[in-house]
């Protein structure tokens, strides 16, 4: 494996990992709120969060680009300093995080909806406040579904191309990830490089799927851990 390929792999893993770490906590909380509470504008929140799933990734990338451009509402002209997302690895994190978030929120929401809310009420009658109930009962009860959502989001971030390439570009060694490297190799007619990158992508995806399978089967139906 060339140093060049290794750099691509490491950058891809770094971008996807940071993206999922940033996304997981707010996405889980949002999934819980959507599952448990009725509030004004709930459908709008739910729709906005799901939007990246249905939009072309390049549209999401273009929207981010306009927001973050020097003359955009979040650009240096408006807020006085540069947020540093354009053409950087942080931009790739932002783009893949936004594209992965809906999957994590949705899985979390469905998982929490599958947990009997009366179990949480039970915890409260035993003296646990809302936060303690969430941390000690809701989260552990939901852990397998949440992990599945995280892996799903991580694999989505690994393969993100359209939005990432729009705001972070495709700069070898700086913002080029597996997805954009395969595209470049194919465009340049370097089929050998494209093949090897594709195989690496397949192996990484396969490992993620196996891990999620193992996690979901590791413990039977909440049986004792023996």
């Amino acid at each position: 494996m060339t140093t060049e390929t290794l750099v691509i792999i490491l950058l891809t893993l770094k971008v996807a990992s940071v993206a999922i770490l940033v996304v997981v906590v707010p996405a889980t909380i949002l999934g819980y709120l959507l599952a448990r509470y009725d509030f004004r504008g709930k459908n709008i929140v739910s729709g906005l969060v799901g939007l990246p799933l249905v939009l072309p990734p390049t549209a999401v990338g273009f929207l981010l680009l306009r927001l973050l451009a020097v003359d955009g509402p979040l650009g240096s002209d408006a807020i006085g300093f540069d947020l540093g997302f354009l053409l950087t690895w942080k931009g790739a994190v932002l783009a893949s995080g936004i594209m992965a978030a809906p999957l994590v929120v949705r899985t979390a929401r469905v998982t929490f909806e599958g947990i009997n809310p009366r179990l949480e009420m039970m915890a409260r009658t035993l003296g646990h406040g809302r936060l303690s109930t969430f941390l000690n009962y809701s989260l552990p009860l939901a852990r397998r579904g949440l992990l599945a959502g995280v892996i799903l989001g991580f694999t989505r971030a690994l393969g993100e191309f359209g939005a990432t390439v729009t705001i972070a570009g495709n700069i070898p060694g700086r913002t080029q990830t597996l997805a954009s490297a395969i595209f470049s190799a194919q465009q340049a007619g370097e089929n050998k490089q494209a093949y090897s990158l594709m195989i690496i992508a397949m192996v990484m995806g396969f490992i993620a799927i196996v891990i999620s399978e193992v996690l979901s089967r590791g413990r039977g139906q909440y049986g004792p851990s023996r």
């Binding site: 009366r118 179990l119 039970m122 409260r124 009658t125 035993l126 003296g127 009860l141 139906q221 909440y222």
Partner: peptide
Amino acid sequence: GPEDRNIGYVPQEGLLFPHLTVQRNLETG
């Protein structure tokens, strides 16, 4: 709220915490 009433509630369906053993269930309060 229920956490501040100092009550012990036993519902029809038991509602034991499925992720905990019997011992840990008994320790939840």
